[in-house]
Amino acid sequence: QVTPQEKEAIERLKALGFPEGLVIQAYFACEKNENLAANFLLQQN
């Protein structure tokens, strides 16, 4: 279960064009650090 703040962060990451499953994995792998997760996702392409 995610908090409203976490859900907002996940939605912002999804808005970058990444699928939800990948976003969630990256977000939690980066210890819920939205900026770190965004950098991680962008570097995967």
Rank of each mutant, 00 (worst) to 15 (best):
Q1G: 07
Q1F: 07
Q1H: 00
V2P: 06
V2M: 15
V2H: 14
T3D: 15
T3A: 06
T3C: 13
T3L: 12
P4D: 15
P4M: 14
P4K: 13
P4A: 11
P4Q: 14
Q5S: 15
Q5G: 11
Q5W: 06
E6D: 03
E6H: 11
K7G: 12
E8G: 13
E8M: 15
E8T: 10
E8L: 09
A9Y: 00
I10G: 00
I10R: 01
I10D: 00
I10Y: 02
I10C: 01
I10N: 01
I10L: 08
E11S: 10
E11Y: 05
E11N: 15
E11D: 10
L13Q: 00
L13T: 01
L13E: 02
L13C: 00
K14G: 04
F18C: 07
F18S: 05
F18D: 07
F18E: 04
P19L: 02
P19K: 07
P19D: 14
E20L: 05
G21D: 15
G21T: 15
G21L: 08
G21Y: 05
L22V: 13
L22T: 15
L22Y: 07
L22D: 15
L22E: 15
V23T: 10
I24Y: 14
I24P: 09
I24L: 13
I24G: 08
Q25C: 03
Q25M: 07
A26T: 12
Y27L: 06
Y27D: 04
Y27I: 02
F28V: 10
F28A: 14
F28M: 15
A29V: 04
A29T: 05
A29C: 06
E31L: 04
E31A: 06
E31P: 00
K32V: 00
K32D: 01
K32A: 06
K32R: 09
N33K: 06
N33P: 00
E34R: 02
E34G: 02
N35P: 12
N35S: 09
N35G: 13
N35R: 14
N35K: 15
L36A: 14
L36E: 15
L36N: 05
L36G: 10
A37I: 02
A37L: 00
A37W: 00
A38V: 10
A38I: 15
A38W: 10
A38N: 08
N39F: 02
N39R: 11
N39W: 03
F40K: 15
F40Q: 13
L41K: 00
L41P: 01
L41I: 10
L42K: 15
Q43H: 02
Q43V: 07
Q43E: 11
Q43M: 12
Q44R: 09
Q44C: 04
Q44D: 08
Q44G: 09
Q44P: 08
